[in-house]
Amino acid sequence: MGINLVGQASKKEVQNKRLTSVLKRTSFIVLAVYFVALAFVFGVKVLFSRKDASLVLEGQNLAKQIKVLSASETLLNTVKNRTALAGKIIDNSPQAPEKLLVEVISMLPIGAKVIQVDAQPDNFNVLIETPDSKTLTQIFSAITASQFTSIELSSLNLTDTGVYNASLNIR
């Protein structure tokens, strides 16, 4: 029994040739597109590099111009440095010892005397002498009506001479 394979082989060959041709063409098209994309990437790269270089140059020019103005910047830096330090030092709170001292003393009525004061940033103690209880009451009224956050009467004495000694812790 004989089998003729020649006819089939030619058909396959034709099909193969066609397939090969399509594949080849497609591959070259893909390669061409790839090269175009590659060229585009290179183009973008060149553009970006130029832009980068021009910005670097612009920055260098600005830096030079700022260096010329460095005297003003130094002065400004000095002022800012000093104000930052002063901001930490200057105590604008009403708890400052001298402010409490002035405020308490300004409340004292005639006849009252300051015998002793111990004023520190976190503690203010004052010993007041009054000739009578009326003056003492006036002092207490004035102090309680003030803006102090804490008032503590630590001691109250009536001496042999008839004067009152009141010790107050104020904050």
Binding site: P97, V114, I115, A119, Q120, P121
Partner: peptide, 18 residues
């Protein structure tokens, strides 16, 4: 408190006879 250089009071201890 109004003098330069900047002066701050740390503590005041007063004792007196009035």
């Amino acid at each position: 408190s109004k003098a330069a250089p900047l002066l701050r009071i740390a503590s005041v201890k007063m004792v007196g006879d009035g």
